[in-house]
Amino acid sequence: MQAFDQIQELWQKHEVEVKVSADEMLQQVKKEVGGLKLKSALNIIAMLASFLSIAALWIFFHFESWTTHVGISITIIAIGVYTLILYRDHRLITKSDFTAHPHEYLNNLKTYQLNRYKLYNSLYWFYAIALSLGIVFYFVEILSFFSTVQKILAVGLTFLWILFCSTVLRKAVIKREKERIALLIEKFERLSEQISMPD
């Protein structure tokens, strides 16, 4: 029994190091970077679609109240600014080739990570407040055409949607993106170490 305990202790102390070749890791990194670029581009496309939809609403429908125009203006400006921020961050991860300039790309990725943290924390609240303010101004005229039940439903569902996006959805997105970018940075650092190590 003592021999078994010694073998078990030896086994627990033994660490197995999994070696992944630089080529395999490079393939993994390429896949991760491609996914990150695609997700970033899709975010920008969705924001542009929102911007164009609200602008079309403003152009093709006739609104009587000045509050509606103010509400739509605030909403369009908020979406426009947020889209520009997303585009700036997208350029960080697409402007340099990570295979040709791995250190520059790693620095850009770290800057991207920091920018995303700011975007989902302090900047997000400015965006959410601006959208909420825009919706309030927009609702002044629009809700006058609704019945009392429809008004309650419209305001209630809008409030619940903003609350859901600001809490549950935002936290899930932050967590997933934080883990994904941190893992990608770690892979880049390991890949750089493997490439710089002599055989």
Results as ranks from 00 to 15, higher is better:
Q2G: 08
A3Y: 10
A3T: 05
Q8S: 14
Q12N: 03
K13L: 04
H14L: 06
E17K: 13
E17Q: 09
S21M: 05
D23T: 04
E24R: 08
K30F: 07
K30A: 01
K30V: 01
K31L: 06
K37P: 00
S40T: 13
S40G: 11
A41Y: 07
L42V: 06
N43D: 10
I44Q: 03
I45E: 06
L48W: 10
A49Y: 15
S50E: 10
F51I: 10
F51S: 02
F51D: 02
F60L: 14
H62G: 08
S65M: 12
T68L: 02
G71F: 05
I72N: 02
I77H: 01
I79M: 06
Y82R: 08
L84W: 13
I85M: 08
Y87E: 02
R88S: 14
R88Y: 15
H90S: 03
I93G: 06
T94C: 10
A100M: 07
A100R: 11
L106H: 04
L106Y: 05
N108M: 04
T111F: 07
R116M: 04
Y117K: 06
Y117M: 07
K118D: 05
L119R: 12
L119E: 04
Y120Q: 01
S122E: 07
W125E: 02
Y127S: 00
Y127H: 12
Y127W: 07
I129W: 14
A130Q: 08
L131A: 01
S132Q: 03
S132L: 06
S132T: 12
F139N: 01
F139Y: 00
I142E: 01
F145Y: 13
F146S: 00
S147V: 10
T148C: 00
K151F: 07
I152H: 10
V155N: 08
G156Q: 11
L157Y: 10
L160R: 09
W161G: 06
W161Q: 04
L169R: 15
R170K: 15
R170N: 14
V173R: 14
R176E: 15
R176S: 15
A182P: 09
A182K: 14
E186K: 14
S192K: 05
E193C: 02
S196V: 03
